[in-house]
Design a protein around this nucleic acid. Sequence first.
DNA 1: CGTCTTCTTGAGCCACTTCAAGGTAAGTGG
DNA 2: CCACTTACCTTGAAGTGGCTCAAGAAGACG
Lengths: 224, 224
Amino acid sequence: MTQINLASMSALGQAKARQTSHDALFDCPELHGVPMPFRRNAEIYGEGEPADYVYKVLSGSVRSYKVLGDGRRQIIGFHLPGDILGLDCEAEHSCSAEAIADCQVLLVRRTTLLNVAEHDIDVARSLWTSTALHLKRAHEHSLLLIKSAQERLAAFLLDIAHRLSVKNEVDLPMSRQDIADYLGLTIETVSRTFTQLSEASVIEFLASRRILVRNPAMLAEMNG
Amino acid sequence: MTQINLASMSALGQAKARQTSHDALFDCPELHGVPMPFRRNAEIYGEGEPADYVYKVLSGSVRSYKVLGDGRRQIIGFHLPGDILGLDCEAEHSCSAEAIADCQVLLVRRTTLLNVAEHDIDVARSLWTSTALHLKRAHEHSLLLIKSAQERLAAFLLDIAHRLSVKNEVDLPMSRQDIADYLGLTIETVSRTFTQLSEASVIEFLASRRILVRNPAMLAEMNG
DNA sequence: CGTCTTCTTGAGCCACTTCAAGGTAAGTGG
DNA sequence: CCACTTACCTTGAAGTGGCTCAAGAAGACG
C-alpha cells in the first residue's frame, strides 16, 4: 500500500521531497501522467480556463497568481520540484500558473485522478491532504500580508531557504517583481529591504539572485 | 445517493445553503454529530490544539483567526450558519476559532469523519470539495489584501451581503475590530471608510451594525 | 560593443496608522 | 426614571512606512 508522504507537500519539507518523492497522487501506476516542458514565462493554465489537468512540477519552478482588473497581481505561491498545483474543486481554475524558468511539468487528467480516487482510498486521502496543506499555506500567506516589509521578506527568505537552500545558500529562481507580487509590496521596497538585510549582515549577496543566509536566527526573530 | 451541494459552501450561496442544507459531510446518518452551544467570545478551538473535531455552524456566527507574537490578529474568515470549519489535515488546528455571538455548533469527531470517508465515497468527495472551496476563498482573501481600503470594504460588503442580506439589508454580526482584522486595516480606517460609503449614498446606516445597501452596482465597481 | 532587461537608489508624496478625544448605545443599580 | 458604567464606534490631527516617479547601475546576451 502506498504510503502518503505529508512532508512531500509541506513548505518546510521540499528538500526532502525531492529525495523521497512518494505521494499517492502521482505514484499510483494508473496515474503516471505525461511530462511536458514549458518555456520561461509560458502560461501553464489561466484563471477561468477549464481545469482539465492537475500538475506536478518535475524541474524548474512555477508561480500561481491572480490579477485584478487594473493589472495588480497577487502571486499565490511558488511551486518547486515535487509540488502539486491545479487542484481546484470546480470545473475552472481559480488562478493562473506560469513557468518562472524553463521547466518540466507532469500532467494528469483531472477526470482520471477523480475516477481513481473513487476506488483507491489512498489517492482520495492524498487528494484531500494535499488540498488541506495548500489551505494551511494560504492561511499563513494571509498572515504574512499584515506584516511589515522587513517581516515579510524575512518570512519569505526563511521559507525559500528551507525549501531549496544548500549550506545556507539560496539561488532564487524568481525576479524581484515576482517576490514583490508575492509579498504585496513594490519592487523598490523589496530591493531596499534586501539592501537593509545585507547591510545588517543577516544575508549576503553572492549575486543579485544568489543569497547566502549569514544569520538565520536573526531572520527568524525578524519574522515575528 | 446523497448529492453534494457545492453551493452550500460557496461564498455566494449561503442564503441558499440554509434552505437546502444538504452536504454529505454532515447529512450522512453515521455523522449526525453533537450540537453544542458557545457563548459570545468563547473559544471553540485554539491554534495548535489537537484537531479532534470538525465543526458546522448551526446558528450564530464564528470567526477563525491567527495571531502574531505581538498580538496582531488576522481573521481568516467568518463562518455563518451552514458553514464548516476545523477541516485541518494535520493533527493540530492551524488557526483558532471563537464565537462572535452566542451560537450553536455541530461537532463531529475527526476520526469518525475520516473513517466514514474511507468507505463512503460521497463523504470523501465532500471532504475534498469543502476543503478546496475553503482554499479558493483563502486565495480570494489574499487578493483582497493587496487592495485599497475602499476596495477591501466594498469586497467585504458584497460578500457579506450575498451571504446574509434580506432585501439589501444586512445585520453585521461582527464588530468593527473584527472587520478591521479581517481586512488588514485599523478600526479607525474601517470606520472612516464606512462613513465615506455612507456619504456617497452607496450604503445607509440604519444602525451601526445594520446596513442598507443602496447601490450594489457601485459597490461592485469599487471592488475592482 | 550596444541593447535589453533587471535591479538599485534617491527624493517627494500619500494612504493609512497612531494617538487622542469625544460620542452613542445598552446595561445596571439606586 | 435617572445616574453611572462599560463597550463600541466615530472623528480629528499629526506621523510614517511604503508607494510613486525618476534616474542610473549591473548583468545577460547576441
